[in-house]
Amino acid sequence: MTEATNKFYNQEITTDIEYLFSKASSLNDKINSLKSNDDSLWNIIAKKLKVDWTYNSNSIEGSTLTLGETFFFISEGLTVEGKPFKDFLDAKNHVEAIDYLYELVSNKRDINEYVLKEINALLLSGVTYTVAQNSQGEKVKKRLTSGEYKKQSNHVLQTDGTIHWYVDPMNVKDQMEDLITWINDKKNKLHPLYIAAVAHYNLVRIHAFDDGNGRGARILMNLILLKNGFFPVVVRNDKKRMYLDALSKADNGDLIPFIRFISTELIETYEKVINDLTSEK
């Protein structure tokens, strides 16, 4: 790992971040204690989480499905008239990627390049192109290849009007190898929330694939949490502006706001689950 990329991994943890880590760990212990009391209720909560996770993650990327439509489609397999077919395809793919994630955790599989490519392949199954902007700012259809590292540069137009370029294709493999090595090297040395948040950011920073990078980064984050006995975090669409702002600060070398944001979102997810587990039936 070069000195230039090292700054995107190693940060001095502030006191408030340590407190959030401690609170998340405490709430995680409480959930593990409560969920064994009622298996049937826990199964309902797990299904609700899958719907929430799919709805919010896809909405951040532009899906038009409502939470209710997402639930209806996942539960019944039926589409809703007037909504783009791709939104339903994205929902189906996301659920299958979550199922694959739980399979990885159950089988105690290590995180490697193959796993991340497979997650991307699942997220983009049946998707042959993505909509992009050309140099004139016009929307064009860009062919994509799922499960393979990008061969063309990608970028995003930021809210301040500037263009942010992701890692050049020729450097992707090296930087992905650095990311995976770092994740596996730090798994018993740093708090899982720190590893999960930093890994999430770096997969977004690299933007290794033609599409599905944001959804894939959130799945990688939760894969790390689940492998360490934690609950998955749902980044909510109504927090999108805060989420993107924290990512932008991380691009400038300050990952603390992003780690703080992810930790807070996990705590909120925990509190919602605990409320479901303890509310009167």
Rank of each mutant, 00 (worst) to 15 (best):
4 A>C: 05
192 P>E: 00
246 A>G: 07
86 K>L: 14
274 I>T: 01
246 A>Y: 01
261 F>E: 09
172 V>S: 00
57 S>W: 01
280 E>H: 11
267 I>P: 00
34 L>T: 04
183 I>S: 02
240 K>H: 09
108 K>G: 10
24 A>Y: 07
195 I>H: 06
196 A>D: 05
237 N>K: 13
261 F>I: 09
151 K>Y: 10
96 E>I: 06
224 I>T: 01
124 L>Y: 02
78 L>V: 14
113 E>P: 01
236 R>D: 04
187 K>T: 07
60 I>A: 00
218 R>G: 02
245 D>W: 02
203 L>T: 02
132 A>R: 10
52 D>Q: 10
137 G>W: 03
12 E>L: 13
87 D>I: 00
13 I>A: 06
272 K>Y: 12
258 F>L: 14
132 A>F: 08
211 D>V: 01
44 I>C: 03
20 L>W: 03
217 A>G: 10
103 E>P: 07
188 N>G: 13
19 Y>N: 13
2 T>K: 14
119 I>V: 10
74 I>F: 07
17 I>N: 11
253 G>V: 05
150 K>G: 00
58 N>L: 00
145 T>H: 12
18 E>Y: 13
192 P>G: 02
209 F>R: 05
165 W>I: 00
146 S>Q: 14
28 N>T: 15
171 N>E: 15
54 T>V: 09
131 V>K: 11
230 F>N: 12
191 H>T: 07
216 G>W: 03
265 E>R: 11
239 K>F: 10
186 K>I: 04
91 A>C: 09
265 E>Y: 09
177 E>I: 09
71 F>H: 13
250 A>L: 03
168 D>K: 13
1 M>F: 10
91 A>W: 02
265 E>I: 08
32 N>V: 03
277 L>M: 03
265 E>T: 07
35 K>V: 08
2 T>E: 15
54 T>G: 09
156 V>L: 05
191 H>N: 15
15 T>L: 15
38 D>I: 02
209 F>L: 05
44 I>D: 10
262 I>D: 09
140 V>D: 05
36 S>G: 11
31 I>V: 14
206 I>L: 06
